[in-house]
Write a protein that binds this DNA or RNA. Structure first.
Lengths: 328, 328
DNA sequence: TTCGTTTTTGCATACGTATGCAAAATATCC
DNA sequence: GGATATTTTGCATACGTATGCAAAAACGAA
């Protein structure tokens, strides 16, 4: 069976006690340089690694972050995953990854995180109800909704400024001369889609512009099908705001298949600024979500709450920017 | 501070001993149905969850798989991530995620996995040297190279049949009438790129077909730049085999920008069958990597080795298939 | 050198759980 | 009902580590 080098083995070789070995690995503990060097030399010789489980049992803390991700297919999220991993690794934390298909997180999705006593939880692009998270709250595990918000003041969430951004996109399309526009929504009941629609709609309605709204589902196929539907209605709008980029790319492809000139006949604006948006084939005008800032904000909140849990909640919005390319 | 319900609390409420509580949660342990029901009722009432760390300390085993991923940007890998997560969750295992940029895994990349006593390790699309893995081997932690192989009989690896596939792609392009072809490689020294090149080259050289080879780096930008370079050489080949899809999409875009008709003037074949390959804009002919089978093979090997470590090594190749679309 | 203060160290213990072992309880057979 | 076999149970212990506390050591000032 497996043999582990323990702190006792190191202590013996270094000629100190096990608790001195422990103190060497615990930041800020009182230990002389002489002892520290002896211990580190012995540890190196023996290939010692502290056992995180034993530590966690004593300290009742871990260096594990639970990251619950829906929609890893959307190219926006691999980038989010990468940045979270990098940021937390630098801080000595590891990522326990959970993938889900559910728009609303179910208890089964994340119960496992409690077995591992995770230090914090991040949930991307999915909502969840209070009863699913009450255990986390009771156990003072901070939780962040990333790119999703719930309007009940019970969570900490980090989003792009969807409302403001969508208002700006509406104004931009109006400035570009559109008098008839469409909005293609993402998954029903998601805060991102709702806010993007709300912002866009509020400006359009204040101006002499016609608006049709369509529902879709934040996938390439959804965008493609919806555009086909719009085309079938025979009055293709001059401007289309699509709730996210991956959908927008489907819209672009469908319009092209029907020889609709972009942007001459119809201008397209997406949301996210995924990698593919900049590809020459698409060159999509889009609202850039400030991933790095959003990740930073999330990491800062968690690091603060993990040190001293206050349970404070807030809906944080980070400003993005309009990236103008060839679809408008 | 946090309060945990322990097995002792459950035992007290259920009127049994702590070890009976433990036996209820341990598969196959001897416990009467009467005791089991009492314990489960008490556990439910108190919201008890077994502490994985305490368990691991005793059993010296975990239900954690370390998944080390390079290149999460390539749409091939989010799908791999999702399938691994789903498969292992079903088996009661969790994924500890590590992201790396290194073609060759460094010790720092995965040392942390040892602190968590992971039950198994999967490394996607990266190589590593023996000295990085010797601790894992000594500690009988099985490790799988996914979509990468190293020709030294020291690892278990799971790949697509790159050699065979590339031979078939070469034959296919020859059948399509190509007398001048090019191969665009992925990252230098990767088994996937090397085998794809080897297979392609071996068939091309046996036939009266001209071949030019180019190096690139498995990114869209790499494909785009290399195609630009090919175009600048003024003799655009009739067929181009691109070592992976994301690169191939860049090649397609570059050719189009230069009004080169695909497939009339130049046929393009990629490798992977990522989601974007099927988009109408690209409709890329490609070799489909059998992700599901490859994931399955990996999971089976790990489940076997984790139960009883044998350390056996093999290079497993899973058959993919040619998907013919509009670029050829 | 002595004394007071500060730092370092080791001892003993506990964290929550699984498990070896022996005792207790239950089941089966005559 | 008694003897035997089997199953279940609780006790005591250990896993590897951090930590409270008191003792020992080190440091600095007079």
């Amino acid at each position: 069976m497996k043999y582990h080098v323990t702190a006792k083995d190191v202590a013996k070789l270094a000629g100190v006690s096990q608790s001195s070995v422990s103190r060497v690995y615990f930041e800020g503990a009182s230990v002389s340089n002489k002892t520290r060097e002896k211990v580190l030399a012995a540890a190196k010789e023996l290939g010692y690694r502290p056992n995180e489980f034993a530590r966690s049992l004593i300290t009742n803390r871990t260096k594990i972050i639970g990251l619950v991700m829906k929609g890893i297919h959307n190219p926006f999220y691999p980038e989010v995953l990468k940045q979270f991993t990098t940021a937390f690794n630098k801080l000595g934390y590891s990522i326990l990854f959970v993938s889900t298909n559910n728009d609303e997180i179910q208890k089964e999705d994340i119960d496992m995180l409690r077995n591992y006593n995770v230090a914090g939880v991040i949930i991307t692009d999915a909502s969840l109800s209070l009863n699913v998270t009450e255990d986390f709250k009771e156990n003072q595990v901070p939780l962040v909704l990333f790119n999703r918000k719930i309007d009940n003041d019970q969570f900490y969430s980090v989003c792009c400024n969807n409302l403001d951004a969508s208002e700006k996109i509406a104004k931009y399309l109006i400035e570009k001369g559109c008098s008839k526009v469409a909005y293609i929504a993402g998954n029903a009941n998601t805060s991102t889609s709702r806010d993007r629609e709300k912002g866009f709609t509020s400006i359009i309605e204040k101006n002499n512009v016609t608006l049709n709204k369509y529902t879709s589902d934040y996938t390439y196929e959804g965008g493609y099908k919806t555009a086909k539907k719009i085309i079938a209605e025979k009055e293709v709008p001059e401007g289309i705001f699509v709730a996210n980029d991956i959908m927008a790319l489907g819209v672009v492809d469908a319009l092209r298949e029907n020889s609709i000139m972009i942007p001459a006949e119809t201008k397209i604006v997406g949301f996210d600024n995924i990698e593919m948006a900049s590809w020459p084939t698409y060159n999509l005008t889009t609202w850039e979500q400030p991933i790095t800032k959003m990740v930073e904000q999330t990491v800062n909140y968690l690091m603060t709450e993990m040190v001293e849990f206050s349970g404070y909640t807030e809906s944080v919005e980070v400003n993005g920017a309009l990236i103008v390319r060839k679809t408008t």
